[in-house]
Write a protein that binds this DNA or RNA. Structure first.
Lengths: 192, 192
DNA sequence: CTCATGGTGTTACCGTCGGTAACCTACTGT
DNA sequence: ACAGTAGGTTACCGACGGTAACACCATGAG
């Protein structure tokens, strides 16, 4: 069948996914090929090079995460509820599969130098999405364009860094992190 | 003389620095050795392995940047002034030598998996420093410990990500970015 | 003067990685 | 029966990080 090349691609990506989850950054093309039961050149035929494979792998997870974030950005109940939901969606995602999350962060850092622009980094795409969300936010209607953009990318990095810290402090409940970040975003340094 | 081993180390680090600035992430041990006018094994005698060299190189820049940030955190004139000064110090540093900044970010991402804890990442150390600054902030006296920590790491990531975005949008003046980020930190989503 | 010693340097090598060229094989349509 | 073409493999390349072994040359002791 004609679609089998796409199916094949999906199968290979799933194999790559397993290797990344298991081996972390030691996932080599040889390992991935072995996991898929084939040899290297086939991987290269499908994905061009390592960066291509990793981009395809990243795209899959990023798209899924962005979907969740988009949904969270539409939460009903006002700005505070939407803020909490979005932060929580992000933290939930990285808590569920930290290995994948680390892979995405690392790729974004290591990939950008060459293909900057073509493939946007992980936090960058989160930031773009957030910028759209902020511009559409009813309670921030008419917000300055630059302000929305800078805020969005800043907030993306904020949630990412706090989440990164939190992964090393599992004794802190997720809700507490969500509380603190949301409070900062909603009211700034003003203490309750 | 006995100190010559340290001087030598410093000379080698400076050579490595030049290569990193020139070659970016393509800085290999061979290139660095050649730049220093020697061969690989000497580098290994001094720094153990590539990670050791990079850690030494990173420590130097991180220490300098953290010094600036510490100073900014002590700016007189109230919370708003200190916030602006700290954000501005960070953005000024990454604007001055973006190549070094990218190197630090990339190393933090690629290094942490193995030696997590021993060598703290770049943004992490910024976060730690900021946490101390927040706890010592007069106008936030008695702030909850967890809140200070989560805020600090979040803010560190926020400034980093916004700075990263800003490096690709040089048409935006630095002061504008500082304005927007400071406003968000001081008052949250409340529009002026 | 000779000779062991230790630091400084080199050459030459190893295993592994990303990536590719060349070949092989088996199924298809004519 | 045979040409063509997917789909696959083996065997290789250059570059990397890292290391072992050896060469040089100063110094101090007998």
């Amino acid at each position: 069948m004609a679609a089998s090349v796409l199916e094949r691609r999906a199968v290979l990506l799933e194999a790559a996914d397993r290797v990344v989850q298991r081996e972390g950054s030691a996932a080599s093309m040889n390992l991935i090929a072995a996991e898929a039961g084939i040899t290297k050149p086939i991987l290269y035929r499908h994905f061009g090079d390592k960066s291509g494979l990793y981009r395809a792998l990243a795209a899959r997870h990023i798209d899924e995460l962005l979907g969740r974030l988009r949904a969270a950005l539409l939460t009903r109940g006002g700005l505070a509820a939407r803020t909490r939901a979005t932060v929580e969606a992000y933290l939930t995602a990285i808590e569920r599969s930290p290995q994948i999350y680390r892979f995405l962060i690392q790729r974004a850092a290591v990939e950008e130098p060459d293909v900057r622009g073509e493939v946007e980094g992980f936090v960058r795409r989160f930031g773009d999405e957030l910028a759209a969300g902020i511009r559409n936010e009813p309670s921030l209607a008419g917000i300055d364009e630059l302000r929305a953009t800078v805020w969005a990318h800043g907030i993306a990095g904020m949630v990412q860094a706090a989440g990164d810290w939190w992964l090393d402090h599992p004794e802190v409940p997720r809700a507490a992190v969500v509380d603190q970040l949301s409070a900062l975003l909603l009211a700034g340094f003003d203490l309750d």
